[in-house]
Amino acid sequence: MKEIVLVPREQPDYGLIAECISCDVFAGRSLEEIENLPVYYGNRRGKLADFFDVSGEVAGRAEEQRIIIDGNVTKTRWIGRGMSAGEIVVRGSADMYVGAWMSGGRIVVEGDAGAFSGMQMRGGELHIIGNAGDYLGCSYRGEWRGMSGGRIVVDGNAGAEVGQNLNGGVIFVRGCVGTFAGVRMKKGLLVAGSAIDRVGAQMVGGTIVVLGKVERLLPSFDFKGEVENPAAGDEKFAGRFRKYTGDHAERNAKGVLYVGDHG
């Protein structure tokens, strides 16, 4: 793999729209072309080199391209938008929309990621080592067809409405998920260390597994007894779980919710 390193200089005070930071866009271009790729901030247009020092080697194809963002980019948005192959590593925290519409390849954020990370992902892998913001793996505003494939792993916690409209793929949050995790979920798998409330509201399909505690469960879920080592998709979960189905506030709901903690 060939590596391009972007060293962030001063970030603007408000969001920097940098959807050009993607292996699909970088591959096959010269360094100079990459430096001149457009970025937007406020109502102005600038170039990538205004905010990043660009160095390294360009690959011919996206599959062979790795992009390292060497530092915190807490105002940079849309990193890896629609990426189909290659790898991006952010050695710090990123702003909103990391890996939105991504269909392949891999993105690692070593710090935190902002809201809407992994929005409507179709494939590939997004790994956030810190915490994720709200709407992790959700659908775009108004869209009813959410994330449909790929895998999101968050080692920390995630905010509200994780996996909203989830339609396939896997979201794994090791820490706690905020309110309305898996809201309007149709397919796929959402796993969380623990959850607060309204888990699976309006879900009609798919599986949610909460390994630890759910503080308040919705009354529209039916308790179906305790199960040992349940499986969902390719994943197996060791231990005893309380099984629920729901959300029966919806017509013909076939969602499944496993809760691990008995307390």
Partner: peptide, 13 residues
């Protein structure tokens, strides 16, 4: 108003 997801499909600066 109902369809923000429709706007993002066709954006012109």
């Amino acid at each position: 108003i109902m369809r923000p997801e429709d706007h993002i499909k066709n954006v012109f600066p």
